[in-house]
Design a protein around this nucleic acid. Sequence first.
DNA 1: CTGAAAGCGCTTACAG
DNA 2: CTGAAAGCGCTTACAG
Lengths: 334, 334
Amino acid sequence: MTEPKRATIYDVARTAGVSKSLVSLVLRNSPNVSPARRQAVLEAIEQLNYRPSHAAASLAGGSSRTVGVVIDDYTNLWFVELLRGLQDGLSAAGLRIAVSDRTLNAHIASDPLDGFLSTRVEALVLATEPTESMRIPANMPVVVAGNRAMKIPGADVVASDDRAGARQATEHLLSLGHRRIGHLTGGGGASQQRREGYEQAMRAAGLEALVIAPGSATTEETGYRGTQELLTRFPNTTAILAGNDSMAMGALAAARERDLQVPGELSVVGYDASPLAATHLLQLTTVDSLNSEIGAEVAAALLSRLADPAREPVSVRLAPRLIQRRTTAAPGRR
Amino acid sequence: MTEPKRATIYDVARTAGVSKSLVSLVLRNSPNVSPARRQAVLEAIEQLNYRPSHAAASLAGGSSRTVGVVIDDYTNLWFVELLRGLQDGLSAAGLRIAVSDRTLNAHIASDPLDGFLSTRVEALVLATEPTESMRIPANMPVVVAGNRAMKIPGADVVASDDRAGARQATEHLLSLGHRRIGHLTGGGGASQQRREGYEQAMRAAGLEALVIAPGSATTEETGYRGTQELLTRFPNTTAILAGNDSMAMGALAAARERDLQVPGELSVVGYDASPLAATHLLQLTTVDSLNSEIGAEVAAALLSRLADPAREPVSVRLAPRLIQRRTTAAPGRR
DNA sequence: CTGAAAGCGCTTACAG
DNA sequence: CTGAAAGCGCTTACAG
């Protein structure tokens, strides 16, 4: 038995006994179709196992109905909740999401944007630090997710207030009685703002800021190395605010290596409320940057921008909140 | 200044002073093009910022040059290395990858396959447990990555030998002197084979298998709960082989909660060699299932299948190897 | 609602 | 290599 060729819209029309135009209307959920005919078309689609061709629809309609999302690296899981919120907000509008990971693409020396431009994505979501090398077409709608060092002219920005979150986390440690609180920072706009929030809170309390910058990556590895350096230079540190949850995990490792009880002898706070922070092993006090809500707001910004390309860029800022778990307590004897 | 319309292949041809056909040849890297003309075309492309339309190329060429990869869940990071190996193997052949996450899609009640079928993907890679509800077209090339409970007729399978890996890990614990070794298992084909490998090794050593199945998920949570159950039912257990690294992380959490030193009082072995296992905090002894190599073999199977759709299905099995880190040692006093 | 027509931006095959 | 032609499977706009 030879494989039949894939069914086209003509086959569906013939099977349903309607015109090709009517099938197209049903596919795009037009209201001006009688229930009976709609039913006939849907049955024909089911029977023929028909799937409309993206390529043809995109080419003919002049619109791919796809939004490109650029993320940093699959390993840093903050994007998962962002995608969930984004997908929820876009699927009702019939828009789909394509994800591109910069780390993976760097490997094969291909610009993730090239693929998206060939796909003719309707808009771009940047959930990563933009770089000069990203040549974004002037008329491309862009929403930046998260705080970034580089500004994209005309782009909307949706982020939680990293300065306020870091301030809140630092004040939590201060209120527990800590005075020697170190901070682990990294590269990028979010790190910068978190650092500023930490410094503001320390200054307001009349305390010295102890900032360690172990590198631009904000990973378990840099968190580990940064904590080693912090505890070597300032041995009487009693608390650490890490730049994100991955760095906090490294801090916990360094503490264990020095036989420092957490939180008895060293308190540790993360940032992002990633799945990692919620594990039984970490039970990490962290700042929830509301990633799923950021995704929802990104979707809203996207839809309104698509509806009105000329509207002024907006900047949405969400208020983060501290999640207290088991890695923070009053300072012990040290 | 109004935005110019996107450049098309006609614009490139005109700018380069060549025919449209020649531009198409350059785009598809044909060898029958003189260097001078190729250069002229590439300059025109650069100057016009031209990006060929996927949709048009796919429709006209009758081929999307895209492979669809279905993964379980972004949170389980074993897929990252798989994608890397896969991408390396496919990019030279001009094939790109589209990834779909089942967990995310379940959320909006859309079958990930539907999207891929509309995209007219050339082939499917299943890096997840297949289900009956996946209606895969009969003529679609499929490669299954990893050991799965359900067989797909005609599909190639690339996996590491989970039975051998689990056996190796168990023998490692036996050779350290452990006799009471528990195993944490979950759902799916990989879990099943790992369990069998563990049971074989225990039987061969004349020991009783202690298997705990805390649920079908293989997460930190089930690892934690499974270890609680194991240590309650068999309090003198001295070692645990977890179904994967996430479960091992949960085991470490449960051990800490009971004040059991790892590895002094309890040895723990993971599986997958995920990024998690390599962290300073875990330093987990684990089995490397060679995910990047699996990705490379999947790519090879895909290319040969595309070249010869009629060839017999193959089954590639890689030999995993144990990575010893800091969570295993000889049993202590208990 | 139908039906005929044009067109989206490419690839393919072919005569020259 | 060029150039003219057909066609991929849809959407769109329109006359009826």
